[in-house]
Design a protein around this nucleic acid. Structure first.
Lengths: 175, 175
DNA sequence: CAATATCGTCAAGCGAGCTTGACGAAAAAC
DNA sequence: GTTTTTCGTCAAGCTCGCTTGACGATATTG
């Protein structure tokens, strides 16, 4: 079975396919984001001594780490995985000296997880690299275009957010 | 150890951090791409019967699947993993009827992997969904802005590509 | 024709990123 | 003051994506 040699699709469909494929702005969006991400990671890696790798699963915690400290359970809820899974990641980051666990004064069962001084420095370094890449990009495509991109992306995000909440709530159940 | 209650970072650094965090256009780029991807996947899932899931590892093959068929070994090289790994993915897709293996007329060891009629239809469907999302987006942010975005993204990709090849070749080692 | 390289497959195994389940300790509710 | 809930941890186990190693069958090379 499946030994035919003739293509299963007509030449007309074939070219229609190829035409559709390259025209998509969304594909460009995906590609641009992927390339930017790779470039940023490469630059950070290049400007960092060595040591055990910090993986995406770890950096996924960063946006939720404040300076006040956050409870493991809350952190897990924000990230959307179990506390056990997050616990392991926090262990790793603590071993690297990036975060520290301080006991919660209001609840002696709980501990608060926050950036250590070193973790904060590392994060700032990463953000600095990102900023550097962004500046390079602005130089390459022009400052005006960069500003326009910024505005447009905000609009795109807003539109996609609206789309998401719309499909989640088929018949007005907002708070 | 690590039982201090005073934040390890000054308030000044703290606000500097927060300022840096939200200003980044690159962050917006990442977020927009992620949201668009999620939305597209949700729409495809919603417009598809059920069945075993096609995962990212599978779709990673699609860009290299032509109608002529490609050898497993070549496909693996293009994707950048071993032939064994790709073999499993192709098995899955074949079980779903998305691709078919036809024996290579020029080499009786080899088989060519290509989209089946059904696989092609599914792909076209997916691309159609993507196009629909794109149209919605254009309606939300305006056609002019969408065209600008398209152009800007092409420039961004070109700039990042240039950056990548530059850092890979520190002292002229081109073919 | 014999030696060697290549094509696809079978099999075992590994790390990452999760999950479920159970538990002691402290807090909250009754 | 007792029951119930919540906090973080220990432990085992799962899926996914991938690797290494070995193999029969065919092509290619000498």
């Amino acid at each position: 079975m499946a030994r035919r040699t003739e293509p299963p699709v007509s030449a007309a469909e074939r070219s229609r396919f190829e035409a559709t494929r390259d025209a998509a702005t969304l594909q460009l969006l995906f590609k641009a984001a992927r390339l930017a991400n790779e470039t940023a990671l490469a630059r950070v890696a290049a400007s960092t001594p060595a040591g055990p790798r910090v993986r995406p699963a770890h950096t996924a915690l960063f946006p939720h780490l404040g300076f006040e400290g956050i409870r493991l359970t809350d952190l897990a809820a924000k990230v959307g995985v179990t506390k056990q899974a997050v616990g392991q990641l926090v262990d790793d980051l603590a071993a690297l000296g990036m975060v520290e666990r301080v006991s919660d004064p209001d609840d002696s069962r709980a501990k608060r997880i926050r950036f250590s001084r070193r973790g904060h420095a590392a994060l700032m370094h990463g953000l600095g690299v990102l900023r550097g890449l962004q500046d390079d990009l602005a130089a390459a495509i022009g400052a005006r275009r960069m500003r326009e991109l910024h505005e447009t992306l905000k609009l795109v995000i807003a539109a996609l957010d609206a789309d998401a909440s719309e499909s989640k709530r088929p018949a007005g159940s907002g708070a």
